[in-house]
Design a protein around this nucleic acid. Structure first.
Length: 851
RNA sequence: GCCGGAGUGGCGGAAUUGGCAGACGCGCUGGACUCAAAAUCCAGUGAGGGCAACCUCAUGAGGGUUCGAGCCCCUCCUCCGGCACCA
């Protein structure tokens, strides 16, 4: 009993009671409405946004990392006097809710709302400063009605197309996927599931209309984005310049255009290859003796599937069709083949083949005994087609190319293209790899596509004033097909136009549609008239800093850029790019053992490896501030974060030490009174050093967080300040000394606020700070306090540091030189030598060159 | 193959962008307190040499520019991420 009592006393004294402290300050912030978005328009604005989560019901460490980063920035900016918009919401449509509904025989809406409530509570426990009055959730009809509104407006602008195409189908998701959602031929959500290609009629958004601008603005407007992301987008858009060349099919006389980036090799074309899916093939082989054989080959290629066909080392296979194309530059007849590597989706689905100067064509030609003809010679060498072992793909000098002989090939590209254009046999064109965004999904839990199939008038958009088309609340899950089709009273409607019988579209939108404009909705989240008010959007946009994972480098970030441009062209906003600066944080890793390979090392936290740390447990055991501090301190935000139990432990120690300082000295510090010490008041060297540390830490935290987003070094600066406070011995009876000590402690509280907001409040209060530390103005630093009277200068002799001299801070070059030459160690190295050169870098070092 | 990163102590990482490499933290070693342990506090901690003042080596490898290079240039190696038969 007695032991327990003392243990309890010890615990109170020694350990920071975060369980009591943290909720108390969270309540204080809430009660005072500290995170409400200011309405004023005159001051500087700052929009901090973190990618909103799918509400799985549970935060994981990756979430904690992004949201802590965003919160640190938001808190700093508020204290710096910005009007800060820092909202949060839920990307709440999507498959997990639907799967849960199937499993539990429930409705996805209720399940989702429960998850949201859980997660909101966890955000709260972390002390993240969101304005919850602006919360949005994409699965609520006050949000998704605007998806439908935007979709119909896009339709009116000709940006929506319903068309039949060979599309990606994930059998596990039981829905089609966008191109961007297929990774190496597999579903982005199901690594082990190969995507099938199915010819289906689907809804597309014409993102390709914006390909050029999306590419151009990467260079011109997104300088503050990581290279990694802009490079990936550039790659994905895949612009290539070339020429469209009109070949003719000899047997039918029809025109057969090809796209090539190498018009300079046009005289070396020895065959043509077309895609197995090429629409003309069936016609060409009809009735020919090889019809069956070719058809069998086509079936074989198509059956192989996209993944196998586009695999790196897949064998090049083809079959001659027995018909011919005529080369427009020299009227030569060349055989047409089907080749398995030719894709129907790129270019025209037909390729002019130049084996001498294209590696694929080379391999293909060698395999099928097709001639190889050199038309470009490398500088100073002569290629012999008969003994070539690989295609020559570099530039060179034109040969066997009629009037173009002798030209450099780069120049010939131009001239041949121009010649073709004059002859009406071709033109300059640009091709993109980017394809239109397939946006329809055969799923229930998404935004219904607001269209009606009328027996009389065909496809009819739902009138804007009839929106939203709400999801029914009584769909049956678990059966075949889309649950939307199980609700007849929802499905069957009267056509607005003719009053005839109509049926609703049962496809819903890709959830990436929802997240493509949510950042705009946050600027005006409750608007019932339009998606967002233009003035509201303009007052907050662009997002000043967007924090999120790089896994969305292409998907979400490309779609959002596209939407911004579309909404701009509709006149809803005047803005070219939504996200001014992008901060892509790394993954959270922990040691674990791969159950498959038996390998033990750092892995991304995952259930299958069993190395997950649960944030709830961490917060319960150590408190939110320790979690926040450790995450920010362990590595810079864009790098992966290796979890370390000992690192967390160390951070707990830091927090406890601060707490003990407040406990042990709180009374003395409060008694010392407020009022900052100015450099002019200082007489003691120790005081000057502490004051310098105060200002130095202020400068570093301001710079590291505010400009570099390097939280690890900012926290280091706080630790150094605290170490200095600990080393400082206030002189008994010396008021200035006491005041300085108190100032240092209060400053520490202020500087810690962005990272450890609860601890900072507690410290602030205990050392007699007034009001809430979260509401303090961010301090500036005084250059005068940073100044020192004497400085140590390193003296180099022939590039090596040989001595150190102490000189007055303002000492001129001559004085430093004299001091340097007088140094004993330096003298040893210059003795008997002549000084050739003397360099003085002010305040840093002196360098002597001797011989 | 192409594009983008990164290689610094036993570990995570610093280095104000060409100026004293290793801040801060973890770990480790020694000491204080304790009957003891934990916690806490103090000191030390890149490697090698020296009693010491000091010296030598050291930022993936090799060259270069410079009074001076972790940082700039060239060649190469390794690792991570993305794209990959795109005509």
């Amino acid at each position: 009993m007695r032991d327990e009592f003392w243990r309890a006393v010890m615990a109170i004294e020694t350990f920071y009671p975060f369980e009591e402290v943290e909720p108390r300050w969270q309540r204080a912030w809430d009660e005072q409405g500290l995170w409400k978005t200011p309405a004023g328009a005159a001051r500087r604005k700052y929009y901090v946004l973190e990618q909103f989560p799918y509400p799985s019901g549970k935060l994981h460490m990756g979430h904690v990392r992004v949201y802590t980063i965003g919160d640190a920035i938001a808190r700093l900016r508020r204290m710096q006097g910005y009007d800060v918009l820092h909202p949060m919401g839920w990307d709440s449509f999507g498959l997990p809710a639907e799967n849960a509904a199937i499993k539990n025989d429930a409705q996805p809406a209720a399940w989702t709302e429960q998850c949201i409530a859980n997660m909101r509570e966890q955000f709260h426990r972390l002390g993240i400063s969101y304005d919850w009055e602006r919360e949005i959730s994409t699965c609520r009809d006050d949000y998704y009605r605007w998806n439908q509104w935007i979709f119909i407006r896009m339709w009116e602008q000709g940006l929506v197309e319903r068309r039949k195409a060979a599309v990606n189908w994930c059998p596990r998701c039981a829905t089609v996927l966008a191109n961007e959602q297929v990774i190496n031929g597999r579903c982005w959500r199901h690594e082990d599931t190969e995507v099938e290609i199915r010819p289906l009629e689907q809804w597309f958004l014409k993102i390709t209309d914006y390909a050029e601008e999306l590419l151009k603005d990467l260079e011109e407007k997104l300088g503050a984005w990581p290279n990694l992301v802009t490079a990936q987008q550039r790659n994905w858009i895949g612009r290539s310049e070339g020429a469209l060349v009109k070949f003719t099919v000899k047997e039918t006389g029809e025109e057969l255009p090809v796209f090539t980036t190498r018009p300079d090799t046009l005289f070396g074309v020895t065959f043509m290859s077309v895609a197995a899916e090429h629409p003309r093939v069936r016609e060409w082989i009809r009735g020919r003796e090889n019809e069956r054989e070719v058809q069998a080959f086509i079936n074989h290629v198509v059956m192989e599937g996209r993944a196998a066909r586009t695999d790196e080392a897949a064998e090049k296979k083809g079959i001659a069709l027995g018909i011919h194309a005529i080369n427009p530059v020299n009227e030569r007849e060349i055989p047409i083949y089907i080749a398995n590597f030719v894709l129907m989706e790129y270019g025209t689905g037909a390729v002019m083949a130049v084996p001498a100067h294209d590696q694929r064509d080379f391999e293909f030609a060698r395999k099928y005994g097709i001639p190889v003809e050199v038309v470009i010679q490398p500088e100073g060498k002569t290629l012999d087609a008969a003994c070539m072992e690989a295609a020559y793909v570099e530039p060179g000098v034109m040969t066997h190319s009629a009037q173009f002989d002798g030209l450099p090939s780069e120049q010939a590209k131009q001239e041949i293209t121009e010649w073709l254009a004059r002859q009406g046999k071709g033109e300059k064109t640009v091709q993109y790899r980017l394809r239109d965004w397939l946006i329809s999904r055969q799923r229930f839990w998404g935004t219904p596509i607001p269209f009606i199939y009328c027996e009389g008038c065909g496809l009819v958009p739902v009138p804007l004033e009839d929106l939203p088309v709400k999801l029914p609340e009584n769909a049956r899950f678990g059966g075949e097909g889309n649950p939307l089709a199980t609700v007849p009273e929802w499905l069957e409607v009267e056509c607005e136009r003719c009053g005839g019988k109509g049926r609703r579209e049962t496809d819903t939108m890709d959830t990436f549609f929802d997240s493509s404009w949510y950042y705009l909705r946050f600027t005006d989240p409750k608007n019932e008239r339009v998606p967002f008010d233009k003035a509201a959007a303009e007052s907050w946009m662009p997002v000043d800093i967007y924090v999120g994972g790089k896994e969305h480098a292409i998907l979400h970030l490309l779609y959002s850029r596209f939407f911004t441009k579309v909404l701009r062209d509709m006149g809803l906003v005047t803005l070219d790019e939504p996200f001014k600066q992008l901060l892509t944080q790394g993954m959270v890793l922990n040691t674990g053992t791969d159950p498959r390979t038996g390998e033990t090392k750092m892995f991304k936290m995952s259930k299958s490896i069993g190395n997950v740390i649960d944030p709830n447990q961490l917060i319960a055991e150590r408190g939110a501030d320790v979690a926040r501090l450790f995450i920010l301190f362990a590595s810079p935000p864009e790098k992966d974060l290796p979890w370390s139990e000992q690192g967390v432990e160390g951070m707990s120690r830091f927090v406890n030490r601060i707490w003990r300082h407040a406990q042990n000295h709180g009374e003395a510090l409060r008694a010392a009174g407020g009022g900052d010490v100015t450099p002019g008041e200082i007489t003691e060297e120790a005081d000057r050093a502490l004051l310098r540390m105060i200002h130095e830490a202020t400068r570093r935290v301001t710079h590291d967080v505010g400009e570099r987003f390097q939280f690890n070094t900012a926290i280091s600066a706080c630790m150094e300040l605290f170490n200095a406070i600990g080393d400082y011995a206030p002189r008994a009876g010396d008021a200035l000394s006491a005041r300085l000590w108190a100032m240092a402690t209060r400053r520490l509280a202020v500087l810690l606020t962005p990272f450890a907001p609860h601890l900072a409040e507690e410290l602030w209060q205990r050392v007699g700070g007034e009001g809430l530390v979260a509401q303090q103005a961010w301090p500036s630093w005084d250059e005068a306090a940073l100044r020192v009277e004497t400085i140590e200068i390193a003296v180099q002799v022939n590039g090596k540091v040989r001595g150190k001299v102490r000189v007055a801070a303002e000492a001129g070059e001559e004085a430093v030189r004299a001091a340097a030459l007088a140094d004993e160690t330096v003298q040893r190295f210059i003795d008997g030598k002549t000084i050739h050169k003397f360099v003085y870098v002010k305040g840093k070092l002196a360098s002597l060159v001797v011989k």
